[in-house]
Amino acid sequence: MRLGELWRYRELIYFLTWRDIKVRYRQTILGVAWAIIQPFMTMVVFSIFFGELAGVPSDDIPYPIFAYTALIPWTFFATGLNQASNNIIGGASLIRNIYFPRLALPIASVFGAVPDMVIAMSILLGMMVVYSLYPSAVALVLLPVFLALAFLTALGVGFWLSALNVQYRDIRFAVPFVIQFWFFATPIAYPASLLDQPWRTLYGLNPMVGVIEAFRWSLLGSGEPPGPMVIVSALVTLTVFVSGLYYFRHMEKSFADVI
């Protein structure tokens, strides 16, 4: 897989990530506040319509923090995936003229979504204080594992879509739809506990289900501790990641000719 080469180019990944972050909020008035506004406003709207009016259950946790906790990893995933799937096309002139490991582009895209997530988390800390909800130490230790799962899922799907995007420009139009459908197929506005077993485990075939539920469990103690559903999700994530890596590697030889 020539992954050693990628390691030699780690500074390139660093600079590409740095470029994405640096450029993202240039010439905006609100700047980095956008990283908070997006999930926060979504949370407010959800709390009014789903939480208050529709009375969607939230595992006995106040609805606003229930939704916001899920929106953090989801927004990270959606941003990372969206950027990653367009990054190869966006770097067309680079690809045609300079050699570097092409994997650096989608990887840097997903890394570039990390700071926004960290900023959005600061609001979560405030909400925890307001609602007096504190995570247990054990659960908190597992949090990075679940974040890594979200990272790998975004990267795996990003590998697939960015490589396909070079050959089939349909992908560009499909990505926003896919992300929207995926959003509603993931327990963000509602809990996975709406489903009974064995359906709940099967639900884990959507890798983001495991990520979101586990994330919420580790921060809020909601739902049940990670079990079969999260394991199914993790396995799907690994499968998508490894297959995406292979597919990308296989396709990248023709990028410069096709793009």
Binding site: E11, L12, F15, L16, W18, R19, I98
Partner: peptide, 12 residues
């Protein structure tokens, strides 16, 4: 300079 250098494969 740093970005382009990195793309060309130079170390920081």
């Amino acid at each position: 300079i740093f970005l382009y250098g990195a793309i060309l494969g130079m170390r920081r």
